[in-house]
């Protein structure tokens, strides 16, 4: 038994550090014995969960069922694909084919929000849900009331081949994101739990053309106090950046406070 083979138990128990894991997965791809053992141990480990059963909070059920309404199940993997990822084959569905990480969670977001980051489309759907929820207690009513047409458009945006999510944060730390498809020339602003900016102020969205100042875009003002999704439906194809700022005057032609800008 090679030494690497001995790590199979730790692999299933998720007890490898990232380097060890990568090394083991390389081995796993070419070792049928280990693949088999991973499959068997995964069944064994699943049985361990019977020892620690605990009823989840009742709210969680409705939160889960509400959030899946906005997520489209992925199509099956192509059959007999020789590239079928070994990890998924072993029941370890987690990373996406492009190797990006699984949907970013709130904590990760908080860590990363200093710099706007591009995330792959693969994580977009789950992220929009996570963002719109701002935690696990969803604004259920709001989610249910999402217009069907809007939901369809949202799906369209998220399935655009060039769709990207740019995450950033407001000066007060509130995480915000822009989901952008240049091919559709559309973008959606997503803010989890946007606080009321106070004093009759509003949030206003902007488009930044290349080499020019910010311009208002679309139906572009909204108030705080909850999760917000706002469409930006024109001129996105040519934009160099998108921005959001806090404004007193909804009709101001330029931002009067420092906007949060994400280059796109």
């Amino acid at each position: 038994m090679s030494e690497i083979h001995g790590a199979v138990g730790s692999y299933v128990a998720n007890a490898l550090d990232p380097d060890e894991r990568r090394e083991f997965e390389k081995h796993l791809a070419v070792c049928p014995t280990c693949s088999r053992e991973v499959a068997e141990f995964s069944e064994t480990a699943a049985e361990l969960s019977s020892l620690v059963q605990a009823p989840p909070p009742p709210m969680l059920r409705s939160a889960v069922l509400s959030s899946i309404q906005q997520v489209r199940p992925l199509p099956p993997l192509p059959e007999d694909g020789p590239e079928a990822e070994p990890r998924r084959a072993a029941g370890m569905a987690r990373t996406e084919p492009d190797g990006s990480s699984a949907p970013v969670d709130e904590l990760a977001l908080r860590r990363q929000r200093r710099t706007a980051r591009v995330l792959s489309l693969a994580v977009a759907a789950a992220m929009v849900v996570a963002l719109a929820m701002g935690g696990w207690v969803v604004n259920l009513v709001q989610q249910r009331q999402t217009q069907a047409a809007e939901a369809a458009l949202e799906t369209q945006l998220l399935s655009a081949p060039d769709a990207k999510v740019y995450a950033s944060k407001m000066p007060d730390g509130t995480p915000v994101s822009f989901v952008v498809s240049k091919s559709m020339s559309k973008a959606m602003f997503v803010g989890a739990d946007m606080p009321d900016p106070g004093g009759d102020q509003l949030y206003k969205l902007w488009m930044v053309p290349p080499g020019a100042g910010a311009q208002p875009v679309g139906d572009n003002t909204f108030s705080g106090g909850g999760s917000r999704k706002v469409w930006m439906q024109s001129g996105i194809a040519d934009a160099a950046g998108l921005a959001v700022s806090v404004e007193k005057d909804a009709n101001t032609p330029q931002p009067t406070t420092t906007p949060v800008v994400v280059p796109i």
Binding site: S42, P56, S67, I68, P73, A90, A93, P103, D105, A130
Partner: peptide, 25 residues
């Protein structure tokens, strides 16, 4: 838990019963 269930929903078509049980997956 919520993230996990949303992911299970998203990946549901990629579950392959020849590779193991639903519970293990």
């Amino acid at each position: 838990t919520q993230e996990v269930y949303v992911e299970i929903w998203r990946q549901s078509a990629r579950y392959d019963s020849s590779k193991g049980s639903v519970l293990a997956w």
